[in-house]
Every structure is written in structure tokens, then in C-alpha cells.
């Protein structure tokens, strides 16, 4: 089925208490701020958020954290100059953190979207982040076993969609969007504009519509 076009509030109603939500963006580039605002208004809680960072300043992901809706964050780089919301919650023991090397984070979601059961990664070998993980030497090099990260819902931001849900992105705001779109049961994309089917050049489509369930124009 092709993507359904709807308002942000209706789209994020797919999120249930206790869900794992993949949230696109690298810092604020590619962060689906309007979808996150709608999720805050929707009220779902006890969430596990998978995102590269743990919120910047007081908007977007940081606002969701501040609203007390997040039980756990899975990310590569929580600590930044403007991550005071996360820092406060973490130091107060009010939020769980799983730190994952950035490439493993992306690849674990790619694996989920591609139906891979697990994969051996050389990243993290010999470091505290590999402790307790299965490892294996392949052709003389050591690897650690990494498992997929699946989302119940993915919230991403793209640039333009057509009415089927094919997506193109803009510059480095692409970042995690195409990977997260494949890794969740329900993918919701917010875009700057929605065009008629046929208006996007098939050669430049980055995320094919098969991965996109709901579209929100903001």
C-alpha cells in the first residue's frame, strides 16, 4: 500500500506506550521536529528512543525528554554543549542510556531493515563497548557480534515526497533517514512538500515508497 497523507497528530497516533521509536537527525539537521512535537501532544510514554544524539537545546528530542516520556535512549553521542536536558535526567538517574558506536548504530538498523539476523563488526573490538559480546576471528581479524535494532515507529524528515511516499532528501539532513525508514514497522516522514506521482525523477529517489507508511507535509 502506498503512503497515506495525514496531519502530524493523526500520524503519530501510531506510537504506543513502551514503543521503540527511531528518530532521524544528526543534531538538528534532519530532525523531524514537528513530528516530535505532535508525539509530545499525543502523550505516549515509556518510550525507547534510538537517535544519534540525545537532544539539543530545548526543542525536538530534548523537549520529548523534558516531558518525561522517554525511559531509555540508544545513541552514539549524548553529551554535547547543548544537551542539558538529557544531562540532567541522566545524572538524576531518570533515564537509561545505551551508547553505541555511530557506525554500529546505523548498521544495526540497516540489518533490521534488510532482514539480517546479526553481523560481525570490527568496530569496538578491545573496548568497553564490546564487553560481554560474542566475538570471532575471521581471516585473522577480530569482530564482535552485533544485533539488529528494530523500531516500532520511525520518525524521519525528508525534503520532498511524492504522493506514493517516494522520498528525496536535502544535503547532510539525509543522515539516518533512509536507514531508519527501512527498520521500523511504521515509518512516518515529514517533508517540506508533497508532489504528484511522476514528478520525482526515479533516478534520484533515495527512499522508495515501499518503506514509507505515512506522510506529513509541514
Amino acid at each position: 500500500m502506498t503512503a497515506l497523507i495525514m496531519e502530524a497528530a493523526e500520524a503519530v497516533a501510531a506510537v504506543k506506550d513502551g514503543d521503540t521509536v527511531l528518530v532521524g537527525g544528526f543534531g538538528m539537521a534532519g530532525m523531524p521536529v514537528e513530528l516530535i512535537d505532535a508525539l509530545i501532544a499525543h502523550g505516549a510514554g515509556d518510550l525507547t528512543i534510538v537517535s544519534n544524539n540525545a537532544g539539543n537545546s530545548d526543542t525536538g528530542l530534548a523537549a520529548l525528554l523534558a516531558a518525561g516520556r522517554v525511559r531509555k535512549v540508544v545513541c552514539s553521542f549524548p553529551r554535547q554543549a547543548d544537551s542539558w536536558v538529557f544531562d540532567g535526567l541522566y545524572r538524576a538517574g531518570k533515564i537509561e542510556l545505551e551508547v553505541v558506536p555511530q557506525g554500529n548504530l546505523a548498521e544495526r538498523m540497516r540489518a533490521a531493515g534488510a532482514g539480517i539476523g546479526a553481523f560481525y563488526s570490527p568496530t569496538g573490538v578491545g573496548t568497553p563497548l564490546a564487553e560481554g559480546k560474542e566475538s570471532r576471528v575471521i581471516d585473522g581479524r577480530e569482530y564482535v557480534l552485533e544485533f539488529p535494532i528494530r523500531g516500532d515507529v520511525a520518525l524521519i524528515r525528508a525534503h520532498v515526497a511524492d504522493r506514493m511516499g517516494n522520498l528525496v532528501y536535502r544535503k547532510t539532513a539525509r543522515n539516518f533517514g533512509p536507514v531508519m525508514a527501512t527498520a521500523a514497522a511504521v515509518t512516518i516522514a515529514q517533508v517540506s512538500s508533497i508532489v504528484d506521482v511522476g514528478e520525482l525523477d526515479p533516478e534520484v529517489i533515495v527512499t522508495p515508497a515501499i518503506y514509507v507508511n505515512r506522510l506529513v507535509s509541514v
Partner: peptide, 13 residues
Amino acid sequence: IPAVGGAMDLAIG
């Protein structure tokens, strides 16, 4: 607060 980013991937890659 632990934060690694892409450092481990770059180091071995």
C-alpha cells in the same frame, strides 16, 4: 556521560 560518536568506527576503519 559516555559518548563515542564515530571515533571507534574511524579508528578501525
